[in-house]
C-alpha cells in the first residue's frame, strides 16, 4: 500500500514537471564561484542564524540569480522562513536573534555600513507567511510604500500605482467598490494578495515570498503563480512553499532545507526528477518522517 502511494506521488510530480519549461542547466555549486557574481542578485555565504540557543540556520550558502524564481522547500521548522528573513534583515528586530556570515546584494554586503537597512528593505520586498495588512484602507495599504519613498507625487500617480498593483494580483475586481474599506476586513486570501500588491508597489529588485499561497484557493493560487511567472522578467523571486507541485510549476531552481542545513540546491527539474541526496528524495517522494 505504501509503495503505491509513493509511485503515484512521484508520477504526479514528474508529469507536472513535463509542462514546465526549464532554464539551461547550470553546473556550478552555489555561491562559491565569484566569477559569476554579476549574474547573482543576492548571495549568501556561510550564514548561521541563532535564536538565543536554537541554531536555526547552519552554514548555508545560497544565491539568487537575476530573473529567476528560487523555491525553498523543506519540512516545517527547518528554517525556511528564517533564511528568508535574513535576506532583508527583518530578523534584526527579533530579540535574541544572531546572524553570522555574509549576505550580498548586487555585490554589496547588506550587513555592512554601505547599504542602509531602509534601502535594503525597499529593494528586497517581502510577503509574510501570515497576511499582515495594515488596519487602514486597502488604498492606503498599497499607497504606503510609494508614499514612504516619494515614488508618487500626486493623487493621480498614487491612484495609478494602487490600481495597477491591485489588477496585477487579481484583486481589483473584488475590491473595486470598497477600496476605502479597511484591509483587515478582507478574507485571508484577499489579505495575502493585498500584501503581495503592497510589496509590488515599491518596485523592489528581489521579492521574498513566504508561503504566499497557503491561504488561497486553487484559482487564486493559479493567478498568483501566473503573476510570479510574469514578475520573473523584472524581479528575482524567492518563494517558500510547502507545495512541491507549486515549486515545480513556478521555480527554475529549488533548494531543500532540513533542520537548518541546506541539503541540496539545483535546477528544479533536476531536484525533483533526480535528487542527489537521499533526504531530498525521501522528502519529495513523501517518505519523509
Amino acid at each position: 500500500m505504501e509503495n503505491s502511494t509513493e509511485t503515484t506521488n512521484k508520477e504526479r510530480i514528474v508529469t507536472r514537471l513535463d509542462d514546465t519549461i526549464f532554464q539551461g542547466r547550470v553546473s556550478e555549486s552555489d555561491g562559491a564561484d565569484s566569477n559569476l557574481s554579476q549574474k547573482y542578485r543576492m548571495t549568501a555565504k556561510n550564514v548561521n542564524v541563532y535564536y538565543s540557543e536554537t541554531h536555526a540556520i547552519k552554514n548555508v550558502s545560497l544565491s539568487i540569480r537575476e530573473n529567476e524564481v528560487l523555491s525553498i522547500i523543506g519540512p516545517s521548522g527547518c528554517g525556511k522562513s528564517t533564511f528568508l528573513r535574513c535576506l532583508n534583515r527583518i530578523n534584526d528586530i527579533v530579540v535574541g536573534c544572531r546572524i553570522t556570515g555574509e549576505i550580498m546584494l548586487d555585490g554589496i554586503d547588506i550587513n555592512g555600513g554601505e547599504l542602509d537597512v531602509v534601502e535594503l528593505r525597499a529593494r528586497v520586498g517581502m510577503v509574510f507567511q501570515k497576511p499582515n495588512p495594515f488596519p487602514k484602507s486597502i488604498y492606503d495599504n498599497i499607497a504606503y510604500g510609494p508614499r514612504l519613498h516619494s515614488m508618487v507625487n500626486s493623487r493621480e500617480e498614487t491612484d495609478e500605482v494602487v490600481y495597477s498593483c491591485l489588477r496585477e494580483v487579481g484583486l481589483l475586481s473584488e475590491v473595486e467598490d470598497r477600496i476605502n474599506k479597511s484591509g483587515t476586513e478582507l478574507s485571508g486570501g484577499q489579505q495575502q494578495r493585498l500584501c503581495i500588491a503592497r510589496a509590488l508597489a515599491v518596485k523592489p529588485d528581489v521579492i521574498l515570498m513566504d508561503e504566499p499561497c497557503s491561504a488561497l484557493d486553487p484559482i487564486a493560487t493559479a493567478k498568483i503563480e501566473d503573476l510570479i511567472d510574469e514578475l520573473r522578467t523584472q524581479y528575482s523571486i524567492v518563494i517558500v512553499t510547502h507545495s512541491m507541485q507549486q515549486a515545480a510549476r513556478v521555480s527554475q531552481r529549488t533548494a531543500y532545507f532540513n533542520l537548518g542545513d541546506l541539503i541540496e540546491v539545483g535546477d528544479t527539474g533536476e531536484v525533483f526528477t533526480n535528487p542527489k541526496h537521499k533526504l531530498t528524495e525521501d522528502y519529495i517522494t513523501g517518505r519523509f518522517g
Partner: peptide, 22 residues
C-alpha cells in the same frame, strides 16, 4: 502585533516611521 511592525519595516520604513505611523 509584531507583524504590523514587520510589515512596515519590510516596505522600507525606518524604525521611527514604522513606530510613529503604524
Amino acid at each position: 502585533p509584531p507583524s504590523i511592525r514587520e510589515g512596515a519595516l519590510a516596505l522600507g520604513a525606518s524604525k521611527t516611521q514604522a513606530v510613529i505611523q503604524e
